[in-house]
Design a protein around this nucleic acid. Structure first.
Lengths: 300, 300
DNA sequence: ACTTTCCATATCTGGTAAGTATGTCATGGT
DNA sequence: ACCATGACATACTTACCAGATATGGAAAGT
């Protein structure tokens, strides 16, 4: 039993005429006659009644033809879907991002643009911590992740730097430094600094401490929060100050004032896109290209 | 694209190993390798990644394999259904019966027995007049019909006589003849006879009139009802008497008394099963055989 | 009766799937 | 380093069988 047989049964059932059906199938009448008879023998079923003028499907033949049409359509659909998958127009793409990355407009913009360009790709989104995202990438639970830290470059994950954001100081409103613009890093030497938990590998955490060292002081680290969003709650409660990427200013919470850092601080927050090295899934390639392209236009 | 390709993709995707997959398929490894590559070329898609130890389906390959499993299952199912149809175990069977025929226990009994024996055959039932049933048979809306009239035997419908029933007189309760048992046909010479409409071709209608003629009188025909059931309402209303098959006594309506006719009346109501001549649909053949068999046991 | 219309049969051919033998490459052990 | 192993690819051959061609035969129309 092959798809060919279904094609033949469908054609003969529709034409009710062997010669015409053969013509439509692009073969000659005798082989069609043989194939039909062979199929009837294989199934042990008469599929067509031979009339003096044409052929008429039996109940079994009509039923088989009907099913055949559906099966053929489904097979073609499957083949077409496979082709589309290879062109990145279909398939699946799992995306992850840290909460801080999700505040940068590039992230929702990239996802939106990809949705529009590839409506047949089923996207799944996942917000999580950097460490968890790296693990999810390795476990193939997701295919790409927007992260802040560069992750160790020697390993099995590739990381594309999309853009660098300026850093801002997040101060409790009414703080004595809230009037100073821009703020030199050294102004924070006597402040309690609230940072989020250090992820595996170097991240923003380390960059901040390094920048402070370069500015000539060691920061007083206060409480650590599990993620950047939580640090802002602590700032709002007056427990200290924090340093966050510019895009976090979109979070205009009660009790927080954002102040730019003076440029000589040499502090910038990277936004990166990570994926498994050597992952050639077309949907992923497209997404990476799209995200990098968008980053270029945003960044200028 | 043939079913073969689906079989191969499914096997390789499941085994993740070409040689093992080939073994499972009962072919050698090289042809399998070729077929997979040919399919990849045809679709323009890489379906498997060649690893040092085995093969790994790509997204497209995995998707195709999944669809393939469903398609293969469906094709097999269609073939199996076709086989069953030929054995009369599946397919469709449309049955019709006149209202008077439906009163004979043989009819529901036959349908019930067929249902039990062939649960995969989808039955459709239709109660209608003899003329309509004959038309429905010719239009292939139904495949068999229980009727009372023999229909013209020369035409394209075949009619099997299942059994003959005795006729009973249906009298209004309190009628002067209600005490006479058995009733001679001549006793009805002065009564108004209520009969159902004469169908096309000879039927019970004609047999009754002929029997009266043989008994030496012409019946006084009163109102005609469209079907036998309606005649009984008229009898109950006292508009006259009627002659009905024995099985109609199952309708024990208020105001009607049934009395047997004396055997010398020579009146009998046939119960027939009609179908298209030359209809070889196995489900029909089975049903006819079953009904005739049942009729023999009922009749003795 | 003749022709036409179709499907079936008989025979042949060619494409191609399957088989056999071998190559190539990566891995892992010694 | 080297060799053995395991895996898929390639080259070539075989054989089947789908398809082509030619013809037969039965029924229906003229």
């Amino acid at each position: 039993m092959e798809l060919r047989h279904f094609r033949y049964v469908v054609a003969v059932a529709e034409e009710r005429h062997l010669t015409r059906a053969a013509e439509r199938l692009g073969i000659q009448q005798p082989p069609l006659s043989q194939q039909i008879r062979a199929l009837e023998a294989e199934l042990g079923v008469q599929l067509f009644r031979r009339l003096p003028r044409g052929m008429e499907p039996t109940q079994a033949g009509a039923a088989l033809a009907e099913e055949g049409r559906a099966i053929l359509a489904r097979a073609e659909h499957a083949a077409a879907a496979a082709k589309r998958t290879a062109r990145g127009e279909a398939g699946k793409l799992g995306l992850g991002f840290t909460s801080s990355a999700s505040f940068h407009p590039l992230v929702p913009r990239a996802i939106r643009a990809f949705r529009d360009a590839h409506p047949l790709v089923s996207l799944s989104l996942d917000e999580s911590g950097t460490t968890e995202l790296a693990a999810a990438l390795r476990a193939e639970q997701i295919d790409a992740a927007f992260i802040r830290s560069p992750i160790a470059p020697q390993d099995d994950l590739a990381v594309h730097a999309l853009l660098d954001e300026d850093m801002f100081a997040a101060l409790p409103t009414g703080h004595k430094l809230a009037g100073t613009t821009p703020l030199a890093l050294t102004a924070l030497a006597d402040e309690t600094l609230i940072l989020y938990r250090r992820p595996l590998g170097p991240g923003l955490h380390d960059s901040i401490i390094a920048a402070c060292q370069r500015a000539g002081f060691s920061p007083q680290i206060g409480q650590e929060a599990p993620r950047m969003l939580s640090t802002l709650s602590l700032v709002a409660s007056g427990l200290g100050v924090s340093l966050v990427p510019a895009s976090m200013r979109r979070l205009q919470a009660e009790g927080i004032a954002y102040r730019p850092l003076s440029p000589d601080a040499g502090l910038a927050a990277p936004l990166n896109l990570a994926h498994r090295r050597g992952d050639t899934a077309p949907a992923l390639r497209r997404f990476v290209t799209l995200a990098r392209g968008l980053a270029d236009t945003v960044d200028g």
